[in-house]
Amino acid sequence: MSISIRAIDLSCQFGQVHAVDRANFTVSVGDFVAVEGPSGSGKSTLLNLIGGLEPPTGGRVEVAGTELSTLDERERTTFRRRHIGMIFQLYDLLPTLNAWQNVAVPALLDGGKLKDLQASSTELLKRVGLQDRADHKPSELSGGEQQRVAIARALMNDPQLILADEPTGALDSVTGDDILGLLQSLCEDGRTVVMVTHAARAAAYATRSLRMLDGAVTEPAAV
C-alpha cells in the first residue's frame, strides 16, 4: 500500500503552546482516518500542517512524498489545489459567488473557464444533495448547506487527499450520514480522507482513529 501522508516528529508551536507535539504517523492511500480529541488538542493545526497552510516548527510532513514546506509559496498553492481538498471548520465561501460558482473556484484558479465548469460544479452539488440550491449565495444558504457547498468545492479538482475539519458538524444526523457515506466511497475509490470529528458516530465511518491530547498524537491499540 502506498503512503499518502508521513509525519516525522511533526511539531507546531505557537509561543508556549505546543499545538502539535512530535507527531509520528503514516496514512496509506485509501485510508479513512478520524482525528479525535478534546477542544484545543491540536486537531485543526494538524490538518493545516498536512495541508501546508502552517509550516512545522519542528519535524516534517510529506504528502505523496512531497514535503510542502520546502516548496515556494506558488508551488505549494498549486500542489494543494491539485492534490488536496480542504474542508474547513468555518466554511469560508466567497460571499459574492453563488453555490455552484463557489464549487468551481479551485478549477477556476487552475485556469478553467466559469462557463465550462457549471455542469461539473452542479453535478458535485447533486452529490451533496444541493442541486436545487445551485444559484443561491452563501448568505441565502443555511449553515449546513454552506458546509455542503464547501465539501463539494473540496472535491472539485478530484483531489487524492481530502482533509476535513468537522465536515458534519452543522448537519442533521441523516444528512451527516449521507456525507460520511460519500467520504467513505471516495476512500473505497482510492482517495484518502483525514477527518477531524467530535462525534463518535462520525468517527465510526473511518477505518482508523488518531487521538490527540495536548498536541500529542496516538493511535489506540486495536481490541
Partner: peptide, 9 residues
C-alpha cells in the same frame, strides 16, 4: 473507548 469504537465500526 477502543472497544466501543471497534464495535461502532
Amino acid at each position: 473507548r477502543a472497544r466501543h469504537m471497534a464495535r461502532m465500526r
